[in-house]
């Protein structure tokens, strides 16, 4: 039961990631691309956690946590760069 649900979910999240890549490539503006990257890293977190459940280990949770933190910092830095022209003033 869980195995089937797990694989279906993995497929759905992977499809979501592909759609994000489509938006990332198509744009049309820079904020759109950053938004796509932001969504992509959140989907990455979901994939890492699903991998954790699939392998029955909790080794990769720290990876997910770090992705959450670093992804957020990256999004904020890119958005700030667009608005101000520099990240650290």
């Amino acid at each position: 039961m869980i195995t089937i649900a797990l694989y279906v979910t993995l497929a759905m999240v992977s499809a979501a990631a592909l759609l994000n890549v489509y938006r990332l490539v198509k744009g049309p503006d820079a904020p759109d691309r950053i938004l796509a990257l932001d969504t992509l890293y959140i989907n990455g977190i979901a994939l890492v956690i699903l991998l954790d459940v699939a392998l029955g280990t909790r080794l990769y949770l720290e990876v997910a946590l770090l992705m959450a933190i670093m992804g957020f910092v990256g999004t904020v830095a890119l958005a700030k760069y667009l608005k101000r022209g520099s990240v650290i003033e």
């Binding site: 869980i2 649900a5 797990l6 279906v8 979910t9 993995l10 497929a11 759905m12 999240v13 499809a15 979501a16 990631a17 759609l19 994000n20 969504t39 959140i42 989907n43 979901a46 699903l50 459940v53």
Partner: peptide, 12 residues
Amino acid sequence: LLAGGFFTLVGA
């Protein structure tokens, strides 16, 4: 799990 996958897909 399925609800999570569904909402992620809808967001995309």
